[in-house]
């Protein structure tokens, strides 16, 4: 299969699937390496860009997904009556942030950061499939370790956990307002 054919095949694959297609699946079916995949994807994305396509290939949740171009999101949501995606509460976001940045993390560690019990919030996040049990810590009591899911990456439009925005280190200055 020529390179162009492979690119076309990937395009077809992304068209068929509505969920993000994992890197591994793309590589396997197109018989390419991961770096080749990255290159082809970039080319496809550029093609779309150049001809102002209504579609966009988005890298998200350790895969690629073909979506409608965001410039049409307003019109499209009117046509389809897309509901606003339900927002997460402040507490949920806080707990989720701690888990995302510190994973794998135990409940005790989360609570020591927040200073409050978080059992209920953790349960809610588990139910929403934003976090999952990733293992057990080999310490006393073998507490459960939590981490984020692919669904989390998708919801927050992240390529991978490494893609999380850097936490701004709090500078001393900000607190020294009186100085």
């Amino acid at each position: 299969m020529s390179v162009e054919e492979k690119k076309a095949l990937i395009e077809a694959l992304l068209f068929i699937e509505n969920e993000p297609v994992p890197y591994g699946v793309i590589c396997k079916h197109a018989d390419i390496t991961k770096s080749e995949m990255a290159k082809y994807m970039k080319e496809l994305q550029d093609d779309y860009e150049v001809r102002q396509s209504g579609l966009l290939i988005n890298e998200v949740a350790e895969g690629y997904q073909m979506i409608a171009h965001p410039r049409f999101s307003l019109i499209l949501s009117k046509i389809y009556g897309v509901k606003n995606k339900s927002k997460l509460s402040k507490v949920s976001l806080e707990v989720l942030a701690i888990i995302a940045y510190k994973q794998p993390v135990t409940r005790a560690e989360i609570e020591s950061v927040r200073g409050v019990s978080t059992e209920r919030t953790i349960k809610q996040l588990l139910e929403k499939d934003l976090i999952t049990i990733v293992g057990r810590r080999e310490t006393v009591g073998r507490p459960i370790e939590l981490g984020t899911t692919k669904h989390f990456l998708k919801i927050f439009n992240l390529k991978s956990v490494k893609d999380l925005p850097q936490i701004r280190e709090i500078k001393e200055m900000e607190f020294n307002k009186t100085d």
Binding site: N18, E19, N58, V60, Q65, I67, A68, P70, F72, S73, L76, S77, Y80, V82, N84, K85, K87, L88, K90, L93, E94, L96, A97, I98, A100, Y101, V113, R114, K154, I155, F156, N157, L158, P165, I167, R168, I170
Partner: peptide, 20 residues
């Protein structure tokens, strides 16, 4: 982490433009 939470919140807003 409070700041991180609000950063997450803004990526959530970006995601609301993603229509699959």
């Amino acid at each position: 982490f409070k700041e991180a939470a609000s950063t997450l919140d803004s990526s959530f807003a970006v995601n609301s433009e993603v229509l699959e």
